[in-house]
């Protein structure tokens, strides 16, 4: 009996971590701010998930850790600014429908632009370094620098403002806790994208091929699938997701500068390490954990906020050296 209890505990402990943190935070913070912070944390987590999931899929399938992933976040955010500028008539009106339509257009534009850049990037940069981890790190770091500088060449070195649409400013009150409207919208959009991704990976044939490729690339190839084409598709999808994350993050912050991607890189890496490299489910839980921790600690001990995620990562690594949901092959 004792052994099976231990097994059960080991299997479910990674899942129980997030609810546990939420519950522990409740008495520590007090019910009013707790609700606000939890929603804020979930929103931040879901935005981070969009960025991190692309990276973890690319890593799982192709064994490529793209250090330039942040560049696609930046590109997504800047494309949003460009797209929303002519749509200013839609965003300044208080009509929720027009506002959401404008954001949808921006989201699609950011995804398309980042995905297209991802296609070129895979062709020019990644293709040469499959199977050479050292050169992968170096070349993608170099490419990150180049793309960031090109962004400055195109959009200028100054930070650009990106005001939220009229009807998504301000807060709604649940009980006595204020919750920013934009956060609720972002949470909904993020969950929709995550759900779409889940359905794609679990319910479609192509999703099956991708999952199988993560498990065993050679076998998928031997069964007659053109793995290179799957690579390109997944790479474009991953970078498009990063672009979406950049769009939502930039819109949330209301300013966009060339460092917007860099500011996320470290959080995204922490998420990947926490969740287990290559695991999409682990990535989701990791992202939510990081989002919640940042907000809770930011409230309780503002000085620790920036470092809290790194401490969280260290704690989890000491407990599970390969992350919460390690993949078999990696």
């Amino acid at each position: 009996m004792k052994g099976s209890w231990r097994d059960l505990l080991r299997r479910w402990a990674p899942y129980a971590l997030t609810p546990l943190i939420i519950l522990v935070a409740l008495p520590a913070i007090g019910a009013g701010p707790w609700l606000t912070l939890t929603v804020a944390g979930l929103t931040m987590g879901i935005m981070l998930f969009l960025v991190a999931s692309g990276l973890t899929l690319i890593f799982g399938l192709m064994d490529v850790l793209n250090f330039a992933h942040a560049a696609f976040v930046t590109v997504g955010a800047y494309v949003t600014v460009t797209v929303l500028r002519p749509l200013v008539g839609w965003t300044t009106q208080t009509s929720l429908m027009l506002n959401l339509l404008a954001l949808l257009v921006a989201l699609i534009a950011a995804a398309v632009a980042s995905g297209a850049l991802g296609f070129v990037f895979e062709r020019l940069i990644i293709r040469q370094v499959y199977g050479a981890p050292l050169r992968q790190i170096l070349i993608t770091i170099g490419a990150l620098t180049v793309i960031e500088q090109l962004v400055i060449v195109i959009w200028g070195p100054e930070a650009l403002v990106l005001p939220k649409p009229a009807s998504l400013r301000g807060s709604v009150f649940i009980g006595s806790s204020p919750i920013e409207t934009y956060r609720l919208a972002a949470l909904a959009v993020g969950l929709a994208v995550a759900l779409a991704m889940h359905l794609f990976l679990r319910r479609t044939r192509l999703g099956l091929v991708v999952r199988a490729g993560v498990e065993n690339r050679e076998m998928v190839q031997a069964l007659g699938y053109h793995i290179r084409r799957v690579f390109i598709g997944v790479f474009m999808a991953g970078t498009a997701l990063a672009g979406m994350g950049g769009m939502m993050w930039g819109q949330y912050q209301e300013t966009v500068n060339s460092q917007i991607g860099d500011s996320m890189t470290i959080l995204v890496f922490i998420i990947l390490i926490i969740g287990g490299l290559g695991s999409v489910g682990g990535c989701f839980i990791g992202a939510i954990l990081v989002g919640l921790t940042t907000n809770y600690v930011g409230f309780l001990a503002p000085k620790l906020a920036l470092g809290s995620n790194i401490l969280l990562m260290a704690a989890i690594l000491l407990w599970q050296p390969r992350g919460l949901f390690p993949m078999a092959e990696h």
């Binding site: 790190i137 390490i273 790194i310 690594l317 390969r322």
Partner: peptide, 14 residues
């Protein structure tokens, strides 16, 4: 002890 890529990411965070 972990894969090289882990070491890179962890050092970045530290």
């Amino acid at each position: 002890r972990l894969r090289a890529i882990f070491f890179s990411m962890i050092t970045l965070a530290i």
